[in-house]
Design a protein around this nucleic acid. Structure first.
Lengths: 255, 255
DNA sequence: CGGGAGGTTGAGCATGTTCAAAGGATGTGG
DNA sequence: CCACATCCTTTGAACATGCTCAACCTCCCG
């Protein structure tokens, strides 16, 4: 595989380029980062609460999540990690993980040494901006979840999370239209949305009855995504999936 | 007031220095940033959803919050902004605000031109790291809120938010022990925790009855903060209020 | 003294939970 | 390739937490 093709198929590059145009040199450096690939099976922990994070990871394929287990054994999933997502730019500075990261499906990831990240942030301003942008987008996703958990009922929450997942998968080119694979169990949806699996089941039945979606054998199709977004009171723009604004990029070019 | 004293009393510098030691030069630059001070009264909007953010702000005094109004008029407060907090490093790249920022009390803030932030990030690596750190801490706070809203009952949520506010105020030197001013109405607490004001009222009565806190005339005293943290299933370390780990700082010194 | 915002109280109600049991799907070893 | 175990989904009924609505109280501030 030629370097150019490699760059195209590297999920991190694909994602960052979606935000900020990168130079050939930027791409080369990014491509050299992920030398050590690691593989995990479904339902395994990548990093566990209490551990000292070893390095920064990029998810190459599969689905993972950040979560915390409470004392009574219940779980709260905080956010999902899709291909191209960094786990954990946020944590490489932290002494101790305050939550765990686990896989949902089989997962491939690339480990990046902490030092390389620091170097890159200094030497490659465009990459640095792209990482900032990526971090901001993560924060936007967290804020949306807060709104969903705080002020939406069960139907609204389910509609919201399905829209989020489909839009995020679309943004990284993992979906054909409104149909995606949804590897989540109803239990995992419940742990994400602050509900019980039983009630998730009942909500899904409502949404199926109203011909808003079909879901079987891990295949989800949103039949009317606009209606679902409306039910969720949710807006695609809230996720900031698009590129950085031009004035930032102009500023980078001047240097 | 001498430059040195100014630096000491600049909330942003005080906050960033808490994370990463800054050079005299770093401090000087930071101090020059906040030339234009702005004042807002209580219950005013600083930035409104849909606006294009003009610049980055630093909160110098008072209490503000990020919030969104839903279509039905209900409100969700996403997070609080305390002195030293940036509003909005996250947003200076974004085209359009996806939420509003409003004051709770009277507020003073310093506006920083976007360009200065970009320059500073490049020329002053320690400041840059401190800003990263600050951003990560914000994210940690958002994640905690997700856990609270998703998996804690009303008593747990109230206990959690009071701990968060007291610990954050302690971290920036705004509290005498466990006693702080709590300018929030029960309505605002409700909009933060995804509950109703009526129910907040009932929960506060329970906590008062159990001699866990006193709250009158905007004065909050946590009588047993460990017990409250325990009820909330909450841990001070989750907020990452302390300094950055030494290896990062060593790395900065090598350059 | 009057008005308004915020706090307090009560009763009925609704959304989502709990618990328990049964019905599919999936996959693994014999 | 079947048998069995396991995980996931589905269903029902009783229950509980927190909501709604409406009234009243209290404090502050003009």
């Amino acid at each position: 595989m030629s370097p150019v093709r490699q760059a195209t198929y590297n999920p991190l590059i694909r994602k960052l380029e979606h935000y900020v145009p990168l130079s050939a040199d930027d791409r080369r450096v990014l491509d050299e980062l992920g030398e050590t690939e690691e593989h995990y099976r479904a339902n395994q922990d990548i990093v566990v609460e209490g551990q000292v994070p070893r390095s920064v990871f990029v998810l190459l394929s599969g689905l993972a999540c950040r979560y915390r287990i409470l004392r009574d054994g219940r779980r709260q999933i905080m956010t999902f990690l899709l291909p191209g997502d960094l786990c954990d730019l946020h944590m490489f500075l932290l002494r101790v993980m305050d939550h765990s990261i686990g896989t949902i499906t089989d997962v491939t990831l690339a480990a990046i040494p902490t030092v390389s990240v620091l170097e890159m942030a200094v030497r490659h301003p465009r990459v640095s901006v792209a990482l900032w942008w990526s971090s901001m987008q993560q924060e936007a996703i967290l804020r949306e979840r807060i709104v969903a958990l705080g002020r939406r009922d069960a139907v609204g929450r389910v509609a919201y999370i399905l829209c989020e997942l489909v839009w995020r998968q679309q943004a990284i080119g993992l979906s054909n239209g409104s149909s995606v694979t949804l590897p989540l169990t109803q239990n995992e949806l419940a742990d994400t949305l602050g509900l019980t699996a039983v009630h998730i089941n009942r909500v899904l039945q409502i949404l199926r009855r109203d011909r808003l979606l079909t879901l079987e054998h891990r295949r989800l199709e949103l039949l009317d995504i606009d209606k679902l977004a409306d039910i969720a009171g949710f807006n695609k723009d809230y996720l900031h999936l698009g590129p950085a604004p031009p004035e930032i990029i102009r500023h980078l070019d001047r240097r």
